[in-house]
Amino acid sequence: MANLVDQMSAAESAADVYKLEQRMLKEMKENITDQCVQCVKCTAGCPAMKLLELHPHEVMALFNLGFTEELLKSEVIWTCLTCFKCKERCPQKVAPVDVILLLRSIAVARGIPPPAGFASVLQALMDRGIIQEPVEVMLKSVKTGKKKFSDRTGCSLPAASRPKDLDKFKEAFTNALVQAMSEEGS
């Protein structure tokens, strides 16, 4: 399926992406991950470790040993909850979460598909700028017990704020998406 994620990876030439990712990985390694002393504080507090076997200190070790390709293809980089505890607790000011997020963006730029949920979210944002149409929710009156479906108006809330000119928004958003791996990353 030619989805937006594929378009993102097709936007830059493979050679350019390769050059950029090598520089980003090198900088990440030299500036940050070389400082890791394998104290395992990150893994001890990781919420994904308990359920999904994400061991951030192992990601750091594998990254430092050059197993980048294996990590990019591994499902484990997609189990991070971005709780940022590892970044907060590292005595060496290393941030496994930053490495994991960099690996995710490089994987996508390489054409390795992220979990399906990411592609559908991206498509939804492209279609309307927000994640879904405002839904009608079941509202059971605490006072009377009466049930009714309510939208924003029914809840006495102002109309949803959303992109006014959807075509212009889509053009700008597409422009932003294809620049993901050009020049500097964030």
Binding site: V5, M8, T82, I100, L101, R104, S105, V108, P114, F118, V121, L122, L125, G129, I130, I131, S161, R162, P163, K164, F169, F173, A176, L177, Q179, A180, S182, G185, S186
Partner: peptide, 16 residues
């Protein structure tokens, strides 16, 4: 005119 803040695509497309 607001849109999504971008939280869900933060890890797959840092610039977007």
């Amino acid at each position: 005119g607001y849109s999504c803040c971008g939280v869900t695509i933060r890890s797959i497309n840092p610039f977007a």
